[in-house]
Simulated assay, not measured.
Amino acid sequence: MTDRLYLMPIGLAASPQSEEGDCIRLAGGLVYAHRFAAIVRSDSGVVARHRFTSGGAAETFARLPEALGAEAEAQWAALRTAHPPLQLGERTIRLDQPQIAGILNVTPDSFSDGGKFLDRPEDGAAHAAGMVEAGAALVDIGGESTRPGAPAVWEGDEIARVVPAVEYCAQMGAAISVDTRRAAVMRAALDAGAHMLNDVTAMRHDPTMAELAAQRGCPIVLMHSPGADDDVHADADYANVVFDVFDALAERRDAAIDAGIARERIVLDPGIGFGKSLADNLALINALPLFHALGQPLMFGGSRKRMVGALSGEAEPHERLGGSLALAVRAMDAGVQLVRVHDVAETVQARNVWRGLRDAALTDFTMLAD
């Protein structure tokens, strides 16, 4: 492999004045970055790591090998890119602050709430309405469990599960994304009133997904998972999980653009829990600011996942609220724009307090000059 470059924000700041203006506004949001590392990787691993502040970026890039100069400039611009809102039906989802996506599973076997809403549409509709009223920017509907070991679902069954949920969410005026890896399911969901596609295989399972997204002009979430076939957790073999996932998402971003999908409609997700060990997940979460260098809005899904149980005495999924909130806030601290959760009201409350602290930091008297 040729040498690759990664621009990693390694020092975040509460406000620009805390660093006397020597920082950037990360991805146009409420997080500021002051210190960075330009990391060069080759076949043998990391071969160089140049640390710099925002004011020293040009000087640092000049010291890089000539072949990496253009990539350094591209990633530096990406880190500072302010993303336009997502238009989902009549709802406008601003990306200059964290937004909460509420999970609605219409499956018999999802790890957390499978079976609760599959055959009881009135309960599903009430749950979706509750999430919207609690502050969810969108509802993410899934008709196939992607937990490890879950059997694949025939697309006809998935359509029969998803479409009624899309219809009752559309009737209440919700912004709707659909978590599927099949173009036939997404086509039926879009026809029923869905607005956004969330593909856990980043269009590798069903290549016709790219053509559909391009034709319909809908936003699409490209999530990293190592397996493209029935087992999305398979084939997990990482030399360096952070850089490997970064490279894989860059490749899928470029494939989407080449397929005619507008860049401003592409969202990326590092795929926490999908073919990753506990150590892999922790490394990715600690490195979340790096993924802004891909130049796209980010989605993060850590809610109630196995890693929370592993770090909290093997707590069952319904007992993982505290850990899920900790992960959500960590994602917000990293500038992630879309946080996908089961517990919407609690996460919205945490987000609102987080937002208040961020706003206050901009006028914090302890940071102002005498």
Rank of each mutant, 00 (worst) to 15 (best):
Q349P: 00
D123I: 01
A37G: 10
I100C: 08
G322E: 10
G173M: 06
I257H: 07
F274S: 07
L325M: 05
D280G: 12
Q97P: 00
W154Q: 12
A101W: 12
A228S: 15
G193L: 04
S42P: 00
L86G: 11
I220L: 04
G124M: 05
A170K: 12
D191W: 06
D230F: 12
G29E: 02
A72H: 08
M332Y: 04
H127M: 12
A248N: 10
R35T: 10
R351N: 01
H50Q: 11
I10G: 07
P85F: 13
D364G: 09
T81V: 07
L311I: 12
S324M: 03
V348Q: 09
H318N: 12
I266S: 05
E20N: 14
P16N: 05
D343W: 06
D22L: 13
A210M: 13
S15L: 02
D343A: 02
R4Q: 13
G124T: 03
R49D: 08
G55A: 14
S145L: 08
D230E: 15
F365Q: 13
L212W: 04
A165L: 01
F300V: 07
A150M: 10
P16S: 08
V221I: 13
L222D: 04
G124Q: 10
R182Q: 12
S54K: 12
E73Q: 14
Y32N: 03
R263D: 14
A213H: 02
V329A: 11
I272V: 15
A210T: 09
A210I: 03
G227L: 12
F246P: 06
D43M: 10
R187S: 10
K116M: 04
L222Q: 09
G356Y: 14
A38V: 05
G260M: 06
G260E: 08
G149R: 07
G28Q: 00
P108G: 04
D119L: 10
G173A: 08
T201N: 09
E144D: 13
A136F: 02
G69I: 11
A175W: 03
A170D: 04
G273S: 05
H318S: 14
R94D: 11
L7Y: 01
H224E: 02
S324A: 04
G309A: 01
Q296H: 14
S277M: 09
L321P: 07
F36E: 04
E158T: 05
A345M: 01
L118P: 03
A74V: 02
R304G: 02
R204K: 13
F365A: 15
L138C: 08
E314V: 11
A345V: 00
C23H: 11
W154T: 00
L249M: 13
L338M: 06
I10M: 13
R49W: 00
L86N: 09
D22P: 06
Y168P: 06
G89Q: 14
E59Q: 14
A214R: 06
G21I: 11
A360C: 09
L311T: 05
A262V: 07
A194R: 06
V132R: 03
A259M: 13
R94I: 07
I261T: 02
P289G: 02
P98E: 05
P226G: 14
G302R: 05
A62I: 05
A192N: 01
